[in-house]
Amino acid sequence: MNLIQWFRFASPQSFYPLAGRMIPWFWTLAALFGIAGLWVAFFVAPTDAQQGEGYRIIFVHVPASWMSMFIYMVMAFWAGLGLALGTRLSGMMAQALAPTGALMAALSLWTGALWGKPMWGTWWVWDARLTSELILFFLYIGFIALQSAIDDPRRADKAGAILALVGVVNIPIIYFSVKWWNTLHQGSTINLTRAPSMAQTMLLGMLLMALAFWMYSIAVALTRARAIMLERERHTEWVKHAVD
């Protein structure tokens, strides 16, 4: 029974109103987590012993980097699902996620440069993680460019899906090849295998901000998916009712 319920929302017609009801909740959560995260970031977290106040950009930089990588995985998941099951909605979700992912990658590079200038004395170094983030940004741009170059939406979805899956296979390869090529970036601050080497309050602020970014990404992706649904299904009856 449950299975049938899930598949019901695989059609744009029934997902459109559901997404419309969910979006305000995600916006509210994003705002709450964002306010709490920024409050911890600016007023609670202590000044870093080595990096002074400048380190506080970590509260934007790290969540943006996480989201940029995570969104690519989610995008590839939807793309693969669309390719395997032929559901219309999957391609729309992948298309809706791509600009947010590209934005997160760009934001991560930008804030990284702002952080790098006072800490390393340079805006940019050809370090492993910076370079692989830049390549991830290129992969997003390639996906968006391919989808927008193909007029037929069904073909655009499938071609984009294949590209996203090829990209997912390549991301670890690119990551490790760049890592062996050069490494200067400070070691990962959050590591799943050992205790975090930072103050608890800093970690709390970062996690709150990560949640805020997460909720924001969902809200924006759903809003964009709704617009794509209306555009692609504009010839159908339900769109006429939905717009009225």
Partner: peptide
């Protein structure tokens, strides 16, 4: 793979470079 994806697509040549060059990076590095 890139050539097949951009087959018959508007601005195929430039798009092909955009898709394929990032994927060439590991080969270039090693």
């Amino acid at each position: 793979i890139g050539a097949a994806l951009t087959l018959g697509v508007r601005g195929g040549g430039v798009l092909l470079a955009l898709l394929v060059l990032p994927l060439y990076i590991p080969a270039l590095i090693f």
